[in-house]
Amino acid sequence: MKTEQVGDSILETWTVDEVQEAFDKNEIVLIDVRTPQEYMFEHIEGALLMPLAFFKAAKLPGQTEKRIVFHCGSGVRSEKVARASIEAGFAKIAHMEGGFGAWKGAKKPYIGTNMATGAPHQVS
């Protein structure tokens, strides 16, 4: 994990392995900031959707029990949202380095779309 001091807050950048381990242990809330279309085509099972275009930091869940980790396609949008969350007063916020592309590249499980039927299916 990489950390960056941003004012009085800390921005964390997590690897896909760190995200998967914490997510599997139910220690984090994983929030996908891609578009609804991107999410419907393929997404990490159990990740919440809060698209960048509609992002409102005040609507985020509290962090008393679980850390919030954002992800997008490549890590650019999630870092932008993480920084906006810090500006809104969150003390510790994280995003996933490399985004969903890195998740898929590391062969992590996700929900994809069967191109023959259009139905969602588990990809391992």
Rank of each mutant, 00 (worst) to 15 (best):
Q20I: 01
E65F: 11
Y110V: 02
A82W: 01
A102F: 09
V123D: 00
A91L: 15
R77Y: 08
A106K: 12
A57V: 05
L48I: 03
S78G: 08
I44M: 00
S78P: 10
P61S: 04
R77V: 07
V123P: 01
K56F: 10
G73R: 10
H71M: 02
I111K: 00
C72D: 11
M50K: 13
E18V: 00
E12Q: 13
M96Q: 12
L52P: 00
K80F: 11
D32A: 07
S78L: 11
R34Q: 15
R34C: 12
R67G: 09
G46C: 15
K108L: 08
V6G: 04
G75P: 03
S78H: 10
V33C: 03
K104Q: 15
V69R: 02
L52S: 01
G62A: 10
V33A: 07
G105N: 13
G73L: 11
T117A: 05
F55Q: 01
T15S: 15
Q37G: 06
A106W: 07
G98L: 06
F41N: 07
V76C: 06
G105T: 09
I93Q: 03
G89R: 03
K2I: 09
E79N: 14
V69P: 00
E12T: 11
P61K: 08
S9C: 11
F54S: 12
E38T: 12
I31Q: 01
K59D: 12
Q37Y: 13
S74R: 08
G98N: 09
I68Q: 01
A22L: 07
F100W: 05
V69A: 09
F41S: 04
